Simulated assay, not measured.
Amino acid sequence: MDKDHPSTRPASNFASSPVDLPAQRRYGYEGVTAVDRELAAILSTDVAGFSRLTALDEERTVRALNLCHGRIAELVREHAGRVFGQHG
Score class of each variant (00 low, 15 high):
36 D>E: 14
17 S>P: 02
14 F>S: 09
39 L>H: 06
12 S>C: 06
16 S>V: 01
56 L>D: 15
83 V>Q: 09
31 G>A: 09
34 A>H: 04
65 L>Q: 10
7 S>C: 11
7 S>V: 14
36 D>Q: 15
68 C>S: 14
24 Q>M: 05
85 G>R: 06
48 A>W: 02
32 V>T: 07
14 F>E: 11
19 V>A: 05
35 V>Y: 04
88 G>F: 09
29 Y>E: 09
74 E>V: 03
88 G>L: 07
12 S>D: 05
75 L>A: 13
16 S>Y: 04
35 V>F: 00
15 A>R: 11
6 P>S: 00
74 E>G: 08
61 T>Q: 11
56 L>N: 13
17 S>D: 14
13 N>R: 06
19 V>H: 06
80 A>N: 15
22 P>H: 02
86 Q>A: 11
2 D>S: 01
46 D>L: 03
77 R>L: 10
23 A>N: 04
80 A>V: 01
67 L>F: 07
12 S>K: 13
46 D>Y: 06
81 G>W: 00
20 D>T: 04
82 R>A: 14
51 S>E: 14
62 V>A: 12
15 A>W: 07
52 R>C: 01
24 Q>E: 15
21 L>D: 15
60 R>F: 07
36 D>Y: 06
75 L>Y: 12
54 T>M: 12
48 A>E: 14
10 P>A: 08
36 D>N: 13
73 A>Y: 05
10 P>D: 08
24 Q>K: 10
73 A>K: 03
4 D>G: 04
30 E>V: 02
72 I>R: 03
86 Q>Y: 01
18 P>F: 02
78 E>S: 13
34 A>G: 08
7 S>E: 13
25 R>T: 10
24 Q>S: 10
45 T>P: 01
5 H>P: 05
61 T>S: 09
35 V>S: 09
40 A>K: 08
15 A>T: 09
68 C>G: 07
27 Y>H: 04
71 R>I: 00
40 A>W: 06
27 Y>G: 02
9 R>M: 09
57 D>Y: 00
37 R>F: 05
53 L>G: 01
38 E>H: 07
44 S>G: 12
21 L>F: 06
76 V>I: 15
21 L>R: 13
1 M>I: 11
62 V>Y: 10
56 L>W: 00
57 D>W: 00
45 T>I: 06
20 D>W: 00
23 A>K: 03
81 G>A: 04
51 S>N: 06
14 F>K: 13
14 F>W: 11
45 T>K: 03
16 S>T: 07
4 D>T: 04
48 A>Y: 08
87 H>D: 13
47 V>A: 13
13 N>F: 02
47 V>M: 13
29 Y>D: 01
88 G>H: 10
70 G>S: 15
48 A>Q: 14
22 P>V: 01
27 Y>E: 00
